[in-house]
């Protein structure tokens, strides 16, 4: 059991980070902390993917032009890196739109607490 944990240290760390990020996004009342949680959650998945693609002791998957091409067994798996790059772009745009929403929420309701925002939105509805 302990061996399995230490062999997959990155994956375990990634899952713990995912849990922290997820519960922050779900439970924290502060909008900015929610967004931090969201970023953590996504980064944790990228750590998970990147650690899957990395193989200890192998080279970066770049073909040198002059020397004859070495066999694929000498390289790490390049595909997860590509997925992580795509994912980073996606999460940057999601973070941007959430931050933009937060700015507008703060301008209208003068608070970052989601409960208070809900209360004021309800009051404004009934008024």
């Amino acid at each position: 059991m302990l061996n399995a944990l230490t062999d997959h240290l990155e994956e375990v760390a990634a899952l713990i980070l995912f849990g922290i990020g997820f519960s922050n996004l779900l439970l924290n009342r502060n909008m900015i902390k929610k967004i931090i949680g969201f970023s953590m959650m996504d980064s944790a998945i990228y750590l998970f993917l990147a650690s899957y693609g990395y193989i200890r002791g192998r080279l970066a998957p770049i073909l040198p032009a002059e020397t004859p091409a070495p066999s694929v067994t000498q390289y790490v798996n390049p595909l997860p890196a590509g997925l992580v790059l795509t994912g980073i772009v996606v999460s940057v745009s999601s973070t941007a739109i959430m931050l933009a929403l937060t700015v507008r929420l703060y301008r209208r309701y003068h608070t970052l607490n989601i409960d208070e925002i809900a209360m004021r939105a309800k009051e404004a509805d009934e008024a």
């Binding site: 997820f22 779900l26 929420l105 209208r108 509805d125």
Partner: peptide
């Protein structure tokens, strides 16, 4: 209350995407 609704939508959908 569209602003609040959109924020709620975004939070839940990001949880789902995650």
């Amino acid at each position: 209350r569209t602003l609040f609704a959109a924020t709620k939508y975004m939070i839940f959908n990001q949880l789902g995407s995650g």
